[in-house]
């Protein structure tokens, strides 16, 4: 991907940069789940990337850089939220509109419903579930990222799973006229298809 000239390959900054560049897709995905808005998410991911770059002297090569950058991104997100809490209300609404208005014909129904359901969870449950259930982090790593105890993460993940299941089952979200049970049925069908493919 990035061209690494032989004479620069040993430079620790360059090694750091290569690893950071490799993490950008994951930072974008995590930011997307936090903000729910692709544009705001990329802004957040860029800020986090630059914070990580500026703080590279304090990073120890060989430790978990993915967890480290996720923690930076998360801190960035919440400190911005605190700074502009009025704005957050608006962002939340626009994020929900964005989530509702997903208009990609290639995106299956079930995925839209899952996005909606996810958006309805309390933020701390959503991030715990995303880190452990989608980001591939162990409970211990997710706990470090969120700055809480491991038991707290476990509890949040399990609450999130139950809540999400309930939301998808009884269709407590609003979606123009779609039958309530369809979301769960579509998710089940897709999961079956995917597990056959894998």
């Amino acid at each position: 991907m990035t061209d690494a000239a032989p004479d620069r390959a040993a430079d620790p900054d360059q090694a750091f940069k290569r690893e950071l560049v490799g993490l950008i897709p994951h930072l974008r995905a995590f930011a997307r789940t936090l903000t729910g808005n692709p544009t705001a998410a990329d802004d957040l991911a860029q800020d986090a990337m630059m914070k990580a770059w500026d703080a590279r002297a304090s990073y120890q090569m060989g430790t978990n850089m993915k967890a480290w950058t996720f923690m930076i991104l998360r801190n960035q997100f919440y400190s911005e939220k605190r700074r502009a809490w009025r704005q957050v209300q608006l962002d939340q609404e626009s994020a929900e509109r964005t989530l509702v208005a997903i208009d990609d014909p290639a995106s299956p129904l079930a995925l839209d419903e899952l996005r909606l359901g996810l958006a309805m969870l309390p933020a701390e449950q959503r991030e715990a579930l995303v880190l452990v259930g989608a980001g591939g982090f162990a409970y211990e790593e997710a706990a470090d990222i969120c700055g809480v105890a491991v038991g707290t993460v476990k509890s949040r993940v399990s609450r999130a799973r139950r809540a999400l299941h309930a939301i998808l089952e009884d269709g407590s979200y609003e979606r123009d006229g779609a039958p309530a049970g369809d979301a769960m049925r579509a998710i089940l069908a897709d999961a079956e298809r995917l597990s056959v493919v894998r």
Binding site: A29, A134, M184, L188
Partner: peptide, 14 residues
């Protein structure tokens, strides 16, 4: 099934 979907959603952005 929800778990599979969740990972897929995340990986889509990745």
């Amino acid at each position: 099934a929800i778990g599979v979907r969740l990972r897929q959603m995340f990986d889509e952005v990745v």
